[in-house]
Simulated assay, not measured.
Amino acid sequence: MPVTIKDVAREAGVSPSTVSRVLSNHPRISAATARKVREIMQEMGYHPNLMAKSLVSRTTRSLCVVLPKPAEELFLNLFFMELIRGIVAQAAHDGYDVLISPGASATEEIEAVARLVNGRRVDGVILLYSRRDDPVVEFLRERDFPFVLVGRSPQYPDVRSVDTDNVRAAYDAANHLIALGHTRIGFVGGPPELVVSADRLEGYRRALAEAGLPVRGEWIVEGEFLQDSGVRAMSLLMRLDERPSALLVVDDFVALGVLRGLPELNLRVPQDLSLVSFNNLALAELANPPISSVDIGIYELGRAASGSLIAAVQPAADEQAPKRQIVPHRLIVRQSSGRAD
């Protein structure tokens, strides 16, 4: 016969209600009691009936991560892999499962989220990045369904979110290039509808304006978070009559494309072009030359997003807790950024 809560309670010398509270991570159960009960559960081979528990508590102990584009394209960029790794680690620590919901368009995202929300198949939703006028944010807000945004919402600054101060991060990165003596600094950005792209462009503009340097439209190239966008940017920027001597690139993966596009133009980094990027993925250090990059704490962003959402869906959620968290950033200087000639 399967082991029951009563069997565990009898062996642990506690009441069945105490065992139930341990299973639900009740804050009034001491760490020592919880540890003892869990050890006995393991020894006896007890496994809670999660389906029955969810029917009683009206919770699923599951979170949904909404992918903003087809998974095969998304996972080409290691940023999202590291972000999801942090999300899953914190969720597992707190006893939650994570569902992945793909979508190739905003319409498909809405349909996928609607199925999960209306069917009460998850307790909350994590959106991996923010867009202007995001219909998924609108949908979740209208239904008062718990969600957390990795990024920020310009329309709704009160939504629960975890973010880097991307304006400041780009400002700091641009000032690093300015301090090296560069006066012709270009920007390779991401999709303009994404808030992170707009914020990093704003930080770049601010730094140049404060230094009295020109912000020239032909030195700003927008694209996707893919290597091909970096290659394309090089074909546009490096053939200008007056080209930048340094570039601020929105993402390490795009910066790899920049490096790929330079040999055919007979240009070298940092001798002919200095380069600073964002996210500090492992491949930034392994590139040739290693890329100076802003470390935004991707794994920490993921863990913070999970933790924030789990706190929000708990029965005793603290409504006064801050809804917006900022993960600190730091610039890692490597060989790709050198002094201007």
Rank of each mutant, 00 (worst) to 15 (best):
M1Q: 08
M1P: 11
P2D: 03
P2V: 13
V3P: 01
K6V: 15
D7N: 12
R10I: 10
A12H: 09
P16G: 03
A31I: 12
T33Q: 05
R35Q: 10
R35N: 06
R38M: 12
M41D: 05
R58M: 13
T60V: 11
T60H: 00
C64F: 00
V66I: 13
L76R: 14
N77G: 08
N77T: 14
F80A: 02
L83C: 11
R85L: 11
I87D: 01
A89L: 12
E111L: 13
L116C: 08
L116A: 09
N118Q: 15
I126M: 11
L127Q: 10
S130K: 08
R131V: 14
R141Q: 14
L149Q: 12
V150I: 14
R152L: 10
Y156N: 11
Y156F: 15
Y156V: 07
P157C: 04
D158R: 03
D165Q: 09
Y171Q: 03
L180P: 01
I185M: 06
G186T: 10
L194T: 15
L194E: 15
L194W: 13
D199K: 08
L201V: 10
L201D: 07
E202D: 14
G203Q: 03
Y204C: 07
R216Q: 13
E218R: 05
I220W: 00
F225M: 09
S229C: 10
G230K: 04
V231P: 02
R232K: 09
L237Q: 02
D241K: 07
L247G: 07
L256H: 09
G257P: 02
R260H: 08
R260M: 12
L267Q: 07
V269M: 04
L283G: 00
L283K: 03
A284Y: 03
L286Y: 06
P289E: 02
I296L: 13
I296W: 00
Y299Q: 11
L301Q: 13
A304V: 07
A305Q: 07
S306H: 06
V313W: 00
Q314C: 08
Q314P: 00
E319H: 02
P322A: 06
R334E: 04
Q335P: 01
Q335N: 09
S336A: 07
S336N: 05
G338L: 02
G338Q: 02
